[in-house]
Amino acid sequence: MSADDASGEPAGYVFPDHLPIEPIAPGSTVLVAGPALSRSEDLATSLVTAGSDTDPREGMLFVSTNMTCEKLLTACERLEPGFAADRTGVIDCSGQDLDEYRSDPQVKAVSTQSDLTGIGMKFSALYESLYGAMEGGRVRTGLISLSSLSMYVDMRSLFRFAQTLSGRIDSAGGLGIFAIDPTTHEQKTVNTFSQVADGRIEVREPDADVPADADGEVRVRGLPNQPNGWQPFSLDE
């Protein structure tokens, strides 16, 4: 798939058919909001790993705040059978020993989730590396998750951090996917984080009348040319 559409403008970031989300414009950051049981974090991860399948010139970068690099990459491989680990960077904020990944230049460790400065520096370095390596500089970023980081830093600092990442993604024409569990925050806090995003993908568990193989339902807010209302989705191709 070309990185440009027929008009010569950069093409949107696309997703496989089993995810009912239309292409999202380059430079966008999207908040994926759903409770833990809704599999919202798996969906957020899938929106990033879709870069493996849709365009061989797209890179993927994860800021993993609640999983080790090893567990995250295993999840990526489970969700996307064709997952391209060689085009993926990971910032591991778990504070655990990286072992086999210690010498991998595409994996960076931060000793604690409270070190937003360290996370930001490693993010910039990895993003620049992936941006330079990908034709057209197309990179999908997954921050998994804001809710996990909020347990270690104050909201004002976390908002500024999210705003900085979103700005970097915007200026580079990337795609940002920031996961959040709204059940762990006041509505005011969720609305505040929504200010750093161009739109929101809300996730819930499937209703009784949706197909039995659905993993949940999504509703897209604030993004153009998206389906209306709640749509069932599956995390399996």
Rank of each mutant, 00 (worst) to 15 (best):
G8W: 01
F193V: 05
A197L: 03
A133P: 07
R219S: 13
Q106S: 10
P16E: 02
T45S: 06
E128W: 03
L149I: 10
T49A: 12
V30H: 03
A11Q: 08
P224Y: 01
T45N: 08
A179R: 00
G176N: 08
D4I: 06
V63G: 00
V220T: 09
R57E: 15
Y101H: 14
L79W: 08
F123G: 07
G95V: 09
Q113M: 02
G167N: 10
M60P: 11
T184H: 15
Q195D: 10
S52L: 14
F178T: 07
T49V: 15
S52G: 08
E237T: 00
D209A: 15
M60Q: 11
A6H: 03
V218Q: 05
V153H: 01
M134S: 14
F161H: 09
V30R: 01
I91H: 09
I177Y: 05
I91Q: 01
E100D: 12
E22S: 05
A36D: 09
W230M: 10
M1G: 11
S150V: 11
E128M: 05
T68G: 11
D86L: 05
A11D: 08
H18G: 03
M121A: 15
V90R: 05
D42C: 03
F193L: 12
L235M: 11
D92A: 10
G136A: 15
T183Y: 12
D97R: 02
P206R: 04
L116W: 04
T112E: 03
V139R: 01
A36F: 05
L143W: 14
E205N: 10
M67A: 08
F83V: 08
R221L: 06
A25V: 09
F161R: 04
T117A: 13
G8S: 00
V32D: 10
A172T: 13
T68L: 05
Y127R: 14
M151W: 02
M67G: 00
F62M: 14
Q187G: 00
S145M: 14
A179V: 13
S194M: 13
G136F: 15
E70D: 08
I91G: 01
M67I: 06
A75G: 01
L72Y: 10
G199E: 08
S64F: 02
S114I: 14
G173C: 02
A44F: 05
A11M: 04
M121I: 12
W230V: 07
V220W: 05
R140W: 10
R102E: 02
R138Q: 08
F233W: 14
L175K: 10
G136K: 12
D181Y: 04
G95Y: 01
I144E: 06
L149F: 05
R138V: 15
R78A: 03
V218P: 06
L73R: 09
G136V: 10
D97P: 03
V63E: 09
V110W: 11
D115Q: 03
G167P: 08
D17I: 07
D99P: 00
A212P: 15
L73H: 00
L31D: 04
F161V: 02
S234I: 10
D236V: 12
D99N: 01
D213Q: 14
A75D: 07
I21L: 09
V139L: 09
Y13H: 09
L235P: 07
G142P: 06
D207R: 15
A212H: 15
